[in-house]
Design a protein around this nucleic acid. Structure first.
Lengths: 236, 236
DNA sequence: GACGAACTGGAACAGTGTGCGAGTCGGATT
DNA sequence: AATCCGACTCGCACACTGTTCCAGTTCGTC
């Protein structure tokens, strides 16, 4: 009968007696630490140091490190604004959802490293899911097609954003510039294949001044294509 | 001038003197270990135990654990068959590539946990990339559209396969059946939102006898939609 | 003033990846 | 037949990890 005390269920039972650590504060500092140093830079002791507390004190407010990460992940979902279904047209709404989701992933480049390691269904994730479903329902999808169409968009967005975030993270870690890194890749690829023309040219095409813009274009291209396909389904 | 000795560059200089560990053998056993016990179950000591060797012996054949993982990842890419551009039509070819890639990810459920943690451009990844590009070139795409269209498909496939693989992994770890796990999710969601109708129904729709088939359908739905959109671009 | 709940944090444990360096093997050279 | 040397193995040790246990401290309530 105990309702599987998940992290989001548990609540502070009474007001704190004195100035004390709070779960909110811990989550916030964890987010900062992750954003600046990445997943590898997060350890309970380092986190405690930033909070001027002992490492084991954290365990009063949080069950495990994994639970803490669940909390931060849901915090990220909380940043994502999903427009109302009525306000914009459905396509404009989905477009916005997609862009906001991608932006959130890119803001928190450690996210791809953790989302696939746990289930993690927090309140903000549920809220985003619910509002997303409303969007696709308003578009005219029914039954399972609601889930399928939204799943398709989310899959694409995550697929795109994850790999770009990972790319950015490695560039940052390497300390090199984007162009230097692209040159390295070109060299590696050429060395591996003895000048495969397909790959060589594809990598060459990536060597542009504004890499972010290139990736934005790739994202828009794919998203538009997918939305075109969905629209076609609606009109069929 | 040193060509950044990557893991794939380094070769054994001479034949081994006696019966000895080999990189191929290590990679193979690592793959087995990952497939059966997941990423969390992989440690150098456990791996060495399976090979009847000391843990530190592995470091003669492999620079670091991360490099080892790079090798296994590329091994997975090696399993993916990409059809020739001329044989099937481009759409059939891309469809096959997509299905093969997804199947490989699902076979190796630990992959989503690692692909976004490192760059990892091995020979097999390059080969797959090259053959993929050929497919989209044969379809009629030119210039950057080749990269964009292929990127869209790969993003979707990874997005879909990653989350399904992660789902399967958690079900396996929990030791519960698929239906039990779905029931848990339903309860959690309802508890978090006090019966949000959108989410409630969506989760209800997931509670089917054959979960795999449902996810296959979701995959086909999204892939078809995306390919429809790409075809539309070609005919524009 | 005493009690007890809320909270802190040091010591300790089992486990991790990996550098070091001493040791072993076996084929080629002398 | 003795020597040599590169290929390879592996125990020890180090710094670090998440986490448990428990002895403490703080503070509102009786």
């Amino acid at each position: 009968m105990t309702p599987m005390a998940s992290i989001w269920t548990r609540q502070r039972t009474a007001a704190p007696a004195r100035e004390t650590l709070s779960r909110e504060q811990i989550v916030k500092v964890t987010m900062d630490l992750l954003d600046t140093e990445g997943l590898a830079g997060l350890s309970m002791r380092k986190l405690a140091a930033r909070l001027d507390s002992g490492a084991t004190s954290l365990y009063w407010h949080v069950q495990t490190k994994d639970d803490l990460i669940d909390l931060v992940i849901d915090e990220v979902y909380g940043e994502i604004d999903v427009p109302d279904a009525e306000l914009a047209g459905w396509r404009a709404g989905v477009l916005l959802l997609a862009h906001n989701l991608r932006a959130a992933v890119l803001r928190h480049g450690w996210l791809p490293e953790v989302i696939y390691t746990r289930p993690s269904i927090g309140p903000n994730a549920v809220r985003m899911g619910s509002r997303g479903l409303a969007l696709f329902t308003a578009a005219g999808f029914t039954g399972r097609d609601i889930d399928y169409s939204m799943g398709a968009v989310l899959s694409f967005v995550f697929g795109n954003a994850n790999s770009q975030a990972a790319w950015q993270a490695t560039v940052r870690r390497s300390g090199r510039t984007v162009e230097e890194r692209n040159q390295e890749i070109l060299a590696e690829v050429d060395q591996l294949t003895a000048m495969d023309p397909m790959m060589h040219e594809s990598v060459q095409r990536r060597r542009v001044a504004d890499m972010d813009q290139l990736q934005n274009e790739a994202f828009s291209y794919g998203l538009d294509t997918l939305l075109d396909g969905l629209e076609r389904r609606l009109n069929a």
